[in-house]
């Protein structure tokens, strides 16, 4: 796996950590501060890239809203109204200034504040991703453990074939396949749509089943394969496993108490690296199941040239990626005493 990519940020910021070593004695606090400082240039880069890419898309919201029959004067008026007549640099700085003061701006199309648009959609996406994430871990961890118990055994073989196949299925293909089987043929589950939890929990969950499965299945295949091979590696190569066995520990105890704890670092890294892919996949899944989540907001925004909304969403996604990776680092600290006591 190419997952063990070394964070180069560490080297660049050694002087910073050196300065902090004296100031802060808590490694957890140190890591949080270090990571947040490192996030600043990344977020700035993301904002510039986003703005630049979107600004190069031909057409703007004003032209699109007024249609091809609009006079140049009409367009100019609306552009002025929406602030689109300003030079790009000015628009970027305005937007960035707004972000820093917590003002995400207004949609060029609906003129609603983007904050409220996001607040409306966020619960939908969060529920979908959260369910898929929990489901994928809840399945992949036990399956990987059982498979690693007897590598090459019948359970291992079956699980690995399914996982290898599942990892190769495009998410949207799986989604359509699930719709075809459960909604079209069997008719037991709704194909599209979303019921808010506040209206009806049962209907909400029923509508969530297929999107969650479509999102979770490739993920769980990926996690299962990774965890299984890491566990087998630990069992075969690590001496502490021999020590545990020499104590008289049984295979399950060796797996759960010893190998799994050490393998969990790899799994956590994988989860962290996977966030940005997961966000992309969520966008597609929401589109297929017509769920009013952030993904749909994003696609609408791109199609209607509602760039403020798109920019805000990209920044939000990047921020989520950064925060998840911060959490990954903190989990490392909690799980790995070598970091917690600052010897590594």
């Amino acid at each position: 796996m190419t997952l063990a990519s070394t964070p180069p940020r560490a080297a660049a910021l050694t002087w910073l950590s050196g300065a902090w070593a004296g100031v802060s004695s808590s490694p957890i606090l140190r890591i949080i501060i270090k990571r947040l400082l490192m996030a600043i240039p990344i977020m700035l880069g993301v904002s510039i890239l986003t703005f630049w890419v979107l600004a190069s898309i031909p057409g703007n919201a004003a032209q699109l809203q007024l249609g091809i029959n609009a006079t140049p004067e009409q367009i100019a008026t609306l552009e002025k109204q929406l602030g689109l007549d300003q030079p790009a640099i000015q628009r970027y700085l305005d937007w960035l200034g707004g972000l820093l003061t917590g003002d995400l701006g207004r949609s060029s199309v609906s003129s609603q504040p983007v904050t409220s648009l996001i607040a409306d959609r966020l619960p939908v996406s969060a529920e979908l991703v959260g369910l898929a994430f929990v489901l994928s871990l809840a399945v992949s961890i036990p399956v990987a453990l059982v498979s690693a118990r007897r590598p090459g055994g019948i359970i291992d073989r079956i699980a690995m074939v399914i996982a290898a196949t599942g990892q190769s299925i495009a998410n949207y293909v799986l989604a359509l396949l699930l719709v075809l089987i459960f909604a079209v043929k069997a008719g037991v589950l709704p194909a599209i749509g979303f019921t808010p939890i506040s209206e009806d929990l049962g209907e909400n969950l029923k509508g969530m089943v297929l999107p969650t499965l479509a999102l979770a299945f490739p993920l769980m295949c990926f996690y299962t394969r990774f965890l299984r091979s890491d566990l087998v590696d630990q069992l075969q190569r690590e001496d502490y496993v021999d020590t545990a066995r020499a104590k008289g520990a049984g295979p399950w105890r060796v797996l759960l108490r010893h190998a799994f704890r050490n393998s969990s670092f790899g799994l956590i890294t994988l989860v962290g690296l996977n966030v940005s892919v997961l966000i992309g996949v969520t966008v597609i899944t929401e589109q297929i199941f017509a769920m009013p989540g952030l993904g749909q907001l994003l696609l609408q925004g791109i199609n209607t040239r509602d760039f403020v909304v798109v920019q805000d969403l990209v920044i939000l996604f990047a921020a989520i990626t950064v925060v998840v990776n911060l959490i990954v680092d903190l989990l490392y600290v909690i799980l790995d005493p070598r970091i917690r006591y600052g010897s590594r």
């Binding site: 892919v277 992309g280 791109i302 990209v314 990626t321």
Partner: peptide, 10 residues
């Protein structure tokens, strides 16, 4: 850090 699909879409 950039969501890859979003970048590609844009």
């Amino acid at each position: 850090a950039f969501p890859s699909l979003v970048l590609t879409l844009a």
